[in-house]
């Protein structure tokens, strides 16, 4: 899993490239935890290059989003879900409790609305 980041208006855009599964989820969660320790609480997860997510990956996005909202008044927004990933979000009902946008710009603007 390749992870890069950029910061716009105090919002951190995380670009993931690879599969979000039991093999990679620990590194992704560790990345978020490190940013949170540094005081970053508003994130956009750009999923354009993530073609697969399993329950281990779902657990990470669920617990990170929950911690950001409940403990830090922040949030995790999602952008550009690919079809297989979007289907997993829908089947698990996470599409009803997480903010999902069609591009990163809208996901960033979502923090203002």
């Amino acid at each position: 899993m390749k992870i890069t980041e950029q910061i716009t208006d105090n919002i951190t855009i995380i670009n993931l490239d690879g599969r979000l599964d039991a093999h990679t989820c620990e590194s992704v969660e560790a990345f978020f935890r490190e940013k949170m320790e540094n005081g970053q609480y508003k994130f956009v997860m750009n999923m354009e290059n993530v073609e697969f997510i399993d329950s281990a990956g779902l657990r990470v996005v669920l617990v990170v989003a929950r911690d950001l909202r409940n403990k830090h008044k922040g949030d995790l927004h999602f952008a550009l879900l690919q079809p297989a990933v979007s289907r997993v979000f829908e089947i698990s009902g996470l599409n009803n409790v997480l903010y999902i946008y069609n591009n990163s710009e809208n996901a960033v603007q979502g923090f203002s609305s």
Partner: peptide
């Protein structure tokens, strides 16, 4: 199986694998 109708702060974070198996 997780209850997928509850809000985020009440969601269990495990059990989705078996749920997918039953569902799909």
């Amino acid at each position: 199986d997780p209850n997928i109708a509850v809000p985020l702060d009440k969601r269990q974070s495990s059990g989705y694998g078996l749920y997918f198996l039953h569902k799909l």
